[in-house]
Nucleic acid binder design. Sequence first.
DNA 1: GCATTCAATCCCATATTATGGGATTTATAG
DNA 2: CTATAAATCCCATAATATGGGATTGAATGC
Lengths: 254, 254
Amino acid sequence: MLNVLDVFSEAEPVWTVDALGKSLALSRSTAYRYVKELCEAGLLASVGDGGYSLGPRIIELDRQIRQSDPLLTAAGEVLAPLLPRCGEGILFICAPRGDSVLSVFLAENPNRLDISYSRGRPMPLFRGSASVIILAHLPEGRLRRLYRDHRDAVAAAGLGGDWPSFRTAMRDIRAKPYLTGRAQLDAGVFAISAPVFDVDGNILASLTLAMPEHRADSEAIQPLADLVVEGARRITATIGAQVHARSALRVEGI
Amino acid sequence: MLNVLDVFSEAEPVWTVDALGKSLALSRSTAYRYVKELCEAGLLASVGDGGYSLGPRIIELDRQIRQSDPLLTAAGEVLAPLLPRCGEGILFICAPRGDSVLSVFLAENPNRLDISYSRGRPMPLFRGSASVIILAHLPEGRLRRLYRDHRDAVAAAGLGGDWPSFRTAMRDIRAKPYLTGRAQLDAGVFAISAPVFDVDGNILASLTLAMPEHRADSEAIQPLADLVVEGARRITATIGAQVHARSALRVEGI
DNA sequence: GCATTCAATCCCATATTATGGGATTTATAG
DNA sequence: CTATAAATCCCATAATATGGGATTGAATGC
């Protein structure tokens, strides 16, 4: 039933029940039942004339995430003091989402340069330092499945022509504290990314600083790379502290 | 299975599978199955140490709503030109969501006064002009069910001590083009609200202008009320035009 | 006022899946 | 090596979903 949400896109934000039933190979009564149930949950809403769109519950849940998600609250806390050292650069957090990566947090910076990042925007998994640093730290099994399913995209991104070389490329990236590269969504933008982990040591997200390419001369990069690595490390630590706080509450039966 | 999303709140953003299974009266294997499925859909995500939180798909869907939802795109178009006439007031849109109302859009206004409205914030259905104007325009059957389920809240809000007087109060509100009142979430704030309808004439949302109470003398209100009513009317018309555009495409088989 | 159309709900015979209690697996910590 | 926690798997049994069509309600056009 959750596939219903997948038919909605920026290009097609409004669907009739018949159209989405046809798209998902469902009978009319099943499609009506699913839409009714998703409307009751607030995930869809009627817009009149038999049309439905994504519903207000999504906006409400997104606000809950902004207000209280552990990763985002840690990021807000950690990144605000780092902004003054970033000039017109942008600090943002990306998280894995299925076979792609999503920007989930942007540090507020009134001086920021005007590029395409916005919260919620999906990005390819195999391009861009924000994505590839996450890819590199995925568990071996997940990496293998991604290679199997996307071997052409891996090759096109120059990450390896077969599994052994892809795997080696990923290992080499993991060996370094950060990854640099040109931003994929905008011309003339340079990015530095570092990984953020959960308390179990699994990759949770990446922290990236994006800045104009002309400012990225080799002398300027190192202090900024150190800032990104330190920021990612402190976000990881803040999340870890939250988890330990929750465990302590759990042990006490609260 | 969608009830799983309901256990998450700002107060408790992270849940273990056992805790949410207990909260929802589910067995451990059923709870694990639901969480696994919601993680695969991206609606939940693991945060390590057996904890789960709301997932990145919500952020992605919310961005789709911001970018392309008919109500929000119409609101953005219509409200931007009206802002200069609002001084430090805030223009925002609320939509019904179950038995409450949600702020779904705020017009960007750098001069705005600092009050509590933020996108995604739920509000009571029976208090505040933004909510009550929506309530008044709900279909009779829905109004009757809300009265049955919330008769105490209706009485406490001064909207009527029994069904006939509640119904009359709602009819009287419908007869006027707008509703005014003190904002419920902040002290010293005054609000003017008008209804937004879909193409079938059903209530879709409300448009509200919130401003400092001391600026709301009787001479200043009328032009601002006219602005709000006109803004709501034009949002309704813009949505209607979108629907007609979609119908035309549909007739052509596109 | 009637006929037509569209959106939405209801019905139910039949097919399919969900449930949960427990077993098992995997990883981590002591 | 043992214990624990998180997570997956198994399957007998119970419960629900499906879809094709009937029906309802509202709106539109003549």
